[in-house]
Design a protein around this nucleic acid. Structure first.
Lengths: 237, 237
DNA sequence: CGGACAATTGATCTACCTCAAAATTGGTGG
DNA sequence: CCACCAATTTTGAGGTAGATCAATTGTCCG
């Protein structure tokens, strides 16, 4: 899985491929809503999300929560802990999930010997930061409607890139409160904004499935520009 | 300067130090308000801010602007372009500034031969992302007053870490509109919030100088926790 | 079938926005 | 050193996107 993801970004040599496959891995199956790493901890491993969804979040006073990112299979959601030793946020499962833990020692060894692999991993963390920048821009300068539309575009493309979405349909396993915490809105306002979006016929949202009925209009509504996802080199599947 | 910054984070070997000093560098003096790199460009170099301030920003419809970060001497504000080839935002000077440009070729060569140096640079970009996460949290879940207080704490500590601030005083060369664009607020509301903060005797702000009159209260007002800046290992000066 | 959780609705409130004008400041050239 | 210009800061008035609180309804699942 890790291999698959990395190879979708760049070509690896046999030697590199082999070294990656030799990484000690500890696979675990987790229930939905479980913390994987917590704020303040100093983990000695990072994880690869193999199946299911995860999200990162911060807590502040009075139970206020800010969701920082959503993650899908293939993501390395806490790779930053390889070089930033103290966690400054939490990582948790959103759905039931399969997670592969990789010790930092092994990763450090790998990156020491294979600078090209290091560059790919480094790049992953940089794309991550690019998504943060885009979210910041949304929270600072976009309306609720635009933010929601933007998030749907982003998630659809991310899922499509790993073969989990197609034909403008994708799973969307989070609650409206989760969406609110991700976009800096109240759950009530998310609900009303979704109704507006449905009313305009842009989307259908039932159960945990999102259908984007009018992709082009959705893009236009939020001025979506996918550059920041830096998916160019990544093959679908 | 680059050396000084890197050594403040970790110890370098003689060999590493030498290689860094051999990097070809192109120093330029820029006026305030000039773009250094623009959204959509594919730069072949990154820069080190030697003197003055810089900031990164995105533009969306109707001239709306989101400032993503402020940078002070010692920062490498566009290091991400080393591995993410297309810029997804702009970088500009806030004040007159001296900037040293370092070609990507040289940096890639350096990181290829010295994995420890690569790790330090990687870490820099990860701290950058940590600051984005904190700002996101502020924009999503903190009040205008808290956001402003939080930004002041952050900037003061960043400046102190490089010896540009002391005794709870520091330069603050941005306008209230800049602050607004950084925090997702209107300039008018920034103004009123600053008045409130001054009224409570927490700060003095005149010209381009910020004096934090009651550090502890300012910290408390925004629940500031400096962990996310990951300044631990960095020596002042 | 019941219990828990999520979505929806209604009513009210407020933090922050917009627009526009006035006051202040800082830099510049004479 | 002063006068002037442009850029900022400050003030006022009014408006609104989105928050909060509190039900009510719907849905899923064991």
């Amino acid at each position: 899985m890790l291999l698959r993801r990395l190879e979708s970004i760049a070509t690896l040599s046999d030697e590199e491929r082999e070294a990656i496959q030799r990484l000690p891995i500890n696979v675990r199956v987790l229930k939905a809503g479980q913390d994987i790493v917590r704020d303040g901890e100093r983990p000695s491993q990072s994880c690869l999300l193999v199946e299911g969804w995860a999200f990162r979040y911060k807590l502040i006073h009075e139970g206020r929560r800010q969701i920082l990112s959503f993650h899908v299979p293939g993501d390395l959601p806490d790779l930053q802990s390889l070089h930033i030793h103290t966690m400054d946020h939490n990582l948790a499962t959103l759905t039931n999930a399969t997670v592969a833990f990789i010790p930092h020692d092994g990763l450090r060894e790998l990156t020491r010997h294979f600078p090209d692999v290091a560059a790919i991993l480094w790049r992953e963390t940089l794309v991550d930061a690019g998504v943060f920048r885009e979210w910041m821009t949304g929270m600072g300068r976009r309306s609720a409607y635009e933010r929601l539309a933007h998030l749907f575009c982003e998630l659809y493309l991310k899922l499509q890139a790993v073969g989990l979405a197609d034909e403008h349909r994708c799973p969307l396993p989070m609650t409206q409160s989760d969406l609110g915490d991700a976009l800096g809105l109240s759950n009530v306002h998310v609900n009303r904004t979704l109704q507006e979006m449905r009313g305009k016929g842009l989307i259908t949202l039932r159960g945990n499935a999102l259908i984007i009925e009018r992709w082009n209009e959705l893009l236009r509504a939020c001025e979506f520009d996918p550059t920041y996802l830096h998916l160019e080199k990544r093959a679908a599947g």
